[in-house]
Design a protein around this nucleic acid. Structure first.
Lengths: 169, 169
DNA sequence: CCCTGGTTTTAGGTTTGCCTAAAACTTCAA
DNA sequence: TTGAAGTTTTAGGCAAACCTAAAACCAGGG
């Protein structure tokens, strides 16, 4: 089974289990926009993988292992969606893209992303640079407040992001 | 054909075309880590889609349409990898993850991401907040420099990122 | 209790993207 | 010019994840 496929099922089953106590085949199918017969087939496979417990005609419930995966996916999803929203992506779009991205982001990247979201939420940092970024998005202008300028930097020396990155090596 | 599959082929063919003048079936196959026969099959499909010109035993060259897609993918890839590196992800990991993510990020999100990379490269903003973020990653401490603190903010009022986002609505 | 409507499963197909093995082609060196 | 080595294509298969249609199951109202 493709990992992405597995993960999508697990996320939906987790949500249904919380809402309804168990995940019914038909509900899973409609959430995934597939036919119930396809869901049945996948449930059997996921049971074989040890991710859920499946009883015919009774639906599925996640095992501890499945729940662990579900929670990990939740936190990935949240971090990505929050991050996107911070950089100004519309919440709906952020949600949609996060749904895809969460299946393709490695551990290290996730950690940095989570850090970033935390960092943006810290009151002592949040306002200025996030606001400046937003203004930059709208006007294309760097903005005029200089409190954030490094005191020892040569003024207005325009540097590219790659230059910035190279310098840090 | 799955969009991701198409895109991966186009990216590799584009790179080979630049390097060798044309994309040979065998080279495509080894880059994609598949067998040449599979590449042949896909080349026929991509030709039918109008993305490339394919002559048996002679290899493939992208059409204008294919080139346009290739360039779009390049810029997506670059923006994502640069962004990841800015937030502290190791270059190799950033490259690997960008390869996956580029197929799943929508237009609006891409625009914001590009903006963000530009913004981080602007000399008047780059140093402080990026550096503070890096320190935060390493120490977990907010850091002590207060030049970036909003002058009218209640000091040390700890806010979550979600609170920050809600406030902006 | 039973039977009818809705849900779920089973059985048998389809498509996509890959594979192996063998045939066809190309090239280059003798 | 020829044939051997390497490359490419063709032909025939396979697995994953979906589908349709029909059979099996379940639950509530008469």
């Amino acid at each position: 089974m493709r990992q992405k496929t597995v993960e999508e099922y697990i996320e939906i089953i987790y949500a249904l289990e919380i809402r309804d106590g168990r995940a019914a085949t038909g509900k899973i199918a409609s959430e995934m926009k597939i036919k119930p017969s396809s869901a049945t087939e996948m449930l059997k496979k996921l049971q074989k993988e040890g991710l859920l417990q499946y009883e015919t005609y009774a639906g599925a419930t996640l095992t501890d292992c499945g729940k662990r995966l579900a929670l990990e996916l939740r936190s990935k999803h949240k971090a990505i969606a929050d991050f996107l929203e911070i950089i100004g992506v519309d919440r709906r779009v952020a949600e949609r893209d996060a749904c895809q991205m969460e299946h393709h982001v490695g551990r290290e990247t996730m950690e940095k992303l989570e850090r970033f979201v935390q960092f943006a939420g810290l009151s002592s940092y949040e306002p200025l640079w996030v606001e400046n970024f937003r203004r930059y998005c709208e006007t294309g202008q760097p903005g005029e407040c200089n409190l954030c300028t490094r005191l020892d930097s040569k003024k207005h020396a325009s540097r590219t992001a790659s230059a910035l990155l190279r310098r840090r090596k």
